[in-house]
Amino acid sequence: MVREIEFRDALREAMSDAMRDDKRVFLCGEEVAQYNGAYKVSRGMLEEFGPRRVIDTPISESGFAGMAIGAAMLGLRPIVEFMSWSFSLVAADPILNNAPKMLYMSGGQLGCPIVFRGNDGAGGQLGSTHSWCVESLYANVPGLKMIIPSNPYDAKGLLSSAIKDDNPVFCLESERMLALKGDVPEEAYDIPIGKAVVRRPGTDCTIVSFGRPVHFAMEAAETLAAEGIDCEVIDGRSIKPLDRETIAASVRKTNYCVVVDQSWSFSSVGSEVAAEVHRLCFDDLDNHVHRVHNDDVPAPYAWNLEQEMLPNTRKICEAVRACTYNA
């Protein structure tokens, strides 16, 4: 049965379903148990699964991430919640240097079926050090998968697939979307990792985005439709693997592509998409791929400046107009 629930509840349903199905799955992180999660994602889980499977950790990302990786290597399937992906930076060694490489370095003897999840991107006036978008930084590393749901339905389905996956999966959520409501089936379901979806069909320009900026892309598409530019919006759903085929098929149709990526532009998910579109669709392009990113500055604290720094609807509209020679 489908009901309307919040993004945070969809995440919890995916975790709870998996924990009911598979005794090896457990959740750990700061405040996930007794406090029901810093953002109430794990509300009620301690009650249902008990303190051996819903584990409060010290404020020590490097320690609990490393501990969970060890558990994964030895056969458990941990879910590690980072209150914010910004805090995962102190755990860079275990999550980047150990987890994604374990299967390779052990010659296939030790896998690392683990999910790291938490809030990614600007939360709203959290300041520069707490507003990280880690996708471009982390997606660079071989051996991991990365999902970035933009709505409650995808959150449940993608996280469910991630927990079942035998590889380390990084699940990027957004504090700004946790209260977002959407229709979600009560029963468990999986959304395949590495498959994008067309959110809005269109003929004149492809907008590719991931996570929260998909909503800005949809708003921009409405604004642009009023100007006669019919955009096709693609929600990547996963960053790694990247669904090149869906993106390329769309660009071959529209001949124009704008990528919207909430990370900084240099060496980013956006530049990767642009490079792949140029490679796969070279003869179909009528302009180079245009990119919309965070401005190349640390996130400002001031509300108005932060909004301006992020990839917003206005920037997307401008990029589409420029790309389609309508500027």
Partner: peptide
Amino acid sequence: PAARRSGGRRITPVARR
């Protein structure tokens, strides 16, 4: 400069095709 080196006028790939 890139367009010049490609040996002609500036023409987008899809326009050429």
